[in-house]
């Protein structure tokens, strides 16, 4: 009897939830806002689906309905990826320790 590949994906999913659970509990509360913006950025990895959707199909008719939705999703996800990572970077750059000379 063969195992359905779905089960493997489900295993990855469940294990990743546990990884997420332990990793996020170890995030210091003062960085909860950057945590939200960075999770925002990484969840935009959905762009890989958008790229496949946008570029799929016949070359001569790139603007099929499903391609258009793919391209729209690319724009949305790109806003999020660049915006999310950059704003996280901007925030994290502000967290400084006390200067020694004080």
């Amino acid at each position: 009897m063969e195992i359905d590949p779905f089960i493997f994906r489900l295993s990855i999913f469940i294990l990743a939830i546990f990884v997420g659970y332990y990793v996020v509990w170890s995030v210091t509360p003062s960085l909860h806002t950057p945590l939200m913006s960075v999770t925002n950025a990484i969840s935009s990895v959905i762009i890989v689906g958008a790229i496949v959707a946008a570029l799929a199909g016949d070359n001569n008719k790139i603007f099929d309905t499903s391609n258009i939705f793919g391209f729209l999703a690319i724009i949305l996800a790109a806003v999020n990826i660049f915006g999310g990572f950059l704003v996280t970077h901007r925030m994290l750059a502000m967290y400084k320790k006390k200067r020694k000379d004080k």
Binding site: P5, I12, F13, N40, S43
Partner: peptide, 22 residues
């Protein structure tokens, strides 16, 4: 799951549990 893409599944699970914990 639809796209059978592990990067998305892992990220989704991470973000999902992160938001839930917050």
């Amino acid at each position: 799951f639809t796209l059978e893409n592990s990067a998305l599944i892992i990220t989704g699970a991470l973000v999902g549990s992160s938001g839930a914990i917050l």
